[in-house]
Amino acid sequence: MEPRSFQLFPEAASNFAGQVDGLYAFLVLTSAFFSLIIAFFTVFFAIKYRRKDNTIPTPIDEHGIGGMILEITWSVIPLGLSMVMFGWGAVIFFTESRPPADAMNVYVTGKQWMWKIQHQEGAREINELHIPVDRDIRLTMTSEDVIHDFFVPAFRTKSDVLPGKYTTEWFRPTKIGAYHIFCAEYCGTKHSGMIGVVYVMSQADYNDWLAKGSGEGSMAEQGQALFNQLGCGNCHPSTVQRTNGRAPNLAGIYGTTVDLKDGSRVKVDEAYIRESVLNPEGRIVAGYDNIMPTFKGLMTEDGLLKLVEYVKSLGPANGAPMPAVPGTVDLNPKQTQLKAGGTAAQAGKK
C-alpha cells in the first residue's frame, strides 16, 4: 500500500473487481453520453432560439402524433437501458450473496473501534486479515455493539456487520498484496480509525503464517473447552446415539432441519445456535422442555463463534454421512472440514 500516483480505480484484487469495474464502465459511458446530449441541446437551443423579435413561438401540440412519438421514445429508451443496468447489477449481486459451499471460513467480530478476526485453525488477529490467494473466503460476521460494515475496496465488496445477527461476505482474492479494510457504517467517535489491512498471501506463506498460530488450539477445540467449562454437556450429549431427554443431542445436528415445539421447523445454522444459547426459550426443539437458562451476558460474541464452530465440528454438515462408529465421533474435524489448513493448524499446536 505504498502511495501510488494519481489513479481513478482502486486496486483490482478479487474475483468481483473485474465484474464491478465492467458494470461501472458501462454506466459511466451511458451517463456521459446522455449528459453530453442534454448539455449539447441545452446550449444549442439557448443559442439557436434566442430571442430575436417579439413574435410568439407557436406551441407544439404534444398530443399530436409527433409529440406522442417523442414522449414514448424518451421514456422507453431510458427504461430499456435501465433494465440492462438492473439485470447486470442483479447478476453480480446474486453471485456476491451466495458464498460457495466449500469456501474457507473466517470469523469477524466488529466492536467500537476494532476488527477481531478468528481463523478456524485458532489463529486470532486484530485489524488484520491474512488470507491465501485464489481461495474462496467466507467471512461470518457479527458485532458486539453498534452496526459496522466490513469494506475492502480492492475486493469491491462490503457487508454490514450487525449486532445480534450473523451476516456473511465472500470473495476470492486474486492478487497478492496488502489492501485497506474500512468500516463503512458510521459507528461513533473513532469510526475512521476502525480500519485495517488485508494481507493476501501465497498458500505457502499463509501456511507459514498460520503455523505461528495462537497456541490455543483450533476454534472448535477452544469451543469444546468452553462447552465443558459452562457445563453444556450435562444436558446436551455430544456423541451420537446418546440421549438423556433433557436436551437435543448436538452430534450431527449442524446443517439439519429440526422440528420445533410449536410445529414449525428450523435449519440448524450459525444463527440458530447463537439464538439457542442466548435466548433458549425462544425456539425449542420438539420433545424437549424449556429448562435451559440463558447465557446472555455470560458469553462474548467471540466465545459464541467458538461454540458455533464446536457444534459445527460435531456434525457432518451439508448432509454428509454420519461417522461409521457410534460413540466415537471425531471431535477434531479438521481432516474432514479443512483442506490445506488442517496440517498447519496441527503444526501450530506443537
Binding site: 458494470l23 461501472y24 448539455a39 443496468m85 442483479a90 465488496t157 462490503k158
Partner: peptide, 28 residues
C-alpha cells in the same frame, strides 16, 4: 440550466447506486 445539468448528473449517478452489484461497492 444549472438545475438541469446538476440534476442530470445527480439522477444518472443514482442509476449507479440503484444497480445492486455496483451499490455494494459504492454504498457508504
Amino acid at each position: 440550466f444549472g438545475f438541469m445539468g446538476l440534476f442530470t448528473i445527480g439522477g444518472l449517478t443514482g442509476l449507479f447506486l440503484a444497480s445492486i452489484g455496483l451499490d455494494v461497492h459504492l454504498t457508504d
